[in-house]
Amino acid sequence: MPKLKNADDYLAIALITPSILAVGVFVYGFIAWTLRVSVSRWTGLLPDFSLVGLRNYWELYFDPRFQIDARNLAIFTFVFVGGALLLGFVMAVLVDQNLPGENFFRSLFLFPMAISYIVTGVVWRWLMNPAEGTRISGLNQIFESMGLNFLISRWHTAPVWGIAAIALAAIWQMSGFTMALFLGGLRSISDDVREAARVDGASEWQLYRYIIIPLLNPVTLSVVIILGHISLKVFDLIVSLAGKQLALDVPAIYMWQATFDGYFFGRGAAISILMLLIISLLIIPYIYFNLKHEADL
C-alpha cells in the first residue's frame, strides 16, 4: 500500500469510505446473505436457515420451468444482442457518412434509449397485438391494410419463438445506444488509416471487413458485455409487454414469483445466485481484460 503523503490523500479516503461501506454492505453483504439463504430450507414467512446443501440448485436443474427459462433466455439474448449489434453498426456507418442532417439522425436513433423498458413494453404491447379478425390492430392491421398478409404474426404469443418478438422491442430500444458506441469508435479511427487502405487498392467492403471492423473489436466487446448483462437480467420489459406467463418466463420472473408469490425463499435465492453467476461469466473476464489493459498502458 502506498504511503499517505498529504491531506489530499486523507480527504480522498474520507470521501470514498461511505461508498466503500455502502457497496460492501448493500452489494457484497447482500450477495453473501442471498448465498446463505440459497442453501437453506426457507419456505414460508418464517425464516428457516437449516442447511440443505445444494438441494435448491439441484432441484432447479430438473425443474421444467427453469429449463423453459434457460431456453427463453438463450433465445432472447441471442436475438437481442445480435440484432442490436447489427442494427447499431449499420446505423453508425450510415450516420458516419458526413451527410447533412447527421445530428438529427443521431439524436433520432438515440432517443428510444431515454424511454424506460416499462413504457417500451406498453407501446409494443399495442403494436404487437396478435388479435385476429375484426379485432385486428397494431402492426398486424397495418400489414393487412397494405395487403402484406404474409407478414401478419402471432408475435409474442407464438410457441417457443415468442420470446424473440420481445427481443424486437429490446432491439428497438437499445440499437441507438449501440450506434452511439460504434460511432465513437468509428470517429476515433484516423482518416489516414482509411486513406492508406484505399491507396493500397482496398474496396469499401474490404476496408470495413479487414480494417475498420477489426479496429472496432474493443467497442464490440463492450457492447456485447453491456447488452449481454442487460439481457440476462430482463424482467420489466417482459412483464409490461406480456405479463407474467410461463411461455415467456425468464429466470428473473421465476425468481420473483418463487420468492414473493410462493414464499419459496431458498429457491428464489438460488435462482438469484445462478443469475449472478451467468452474468459474472460475462463481466469478470471483461473487468480482468480491462484492468490488464490499463496496467499495460
Binding site: 420451468r65 423453459i68 406467463q245 410461463l246 411461455a247 418466463d249 408469490d261 414464499y263
Partner: peptide, 17 residues
C-alpha cells in the same frame, strides 16, 4: 396456500404450452 397455488400456476403454465 400461496406456495401450493404458485406451484399449480407453474404446472398449469407449462400445460398451456
Amino acid at each position: 396456500n400461496d406456495s401450493w397455488k404458485t406451484e399449480i400456476n407453474t404446472d398449469l403454465g407449462i400445460f398451456l404450452g
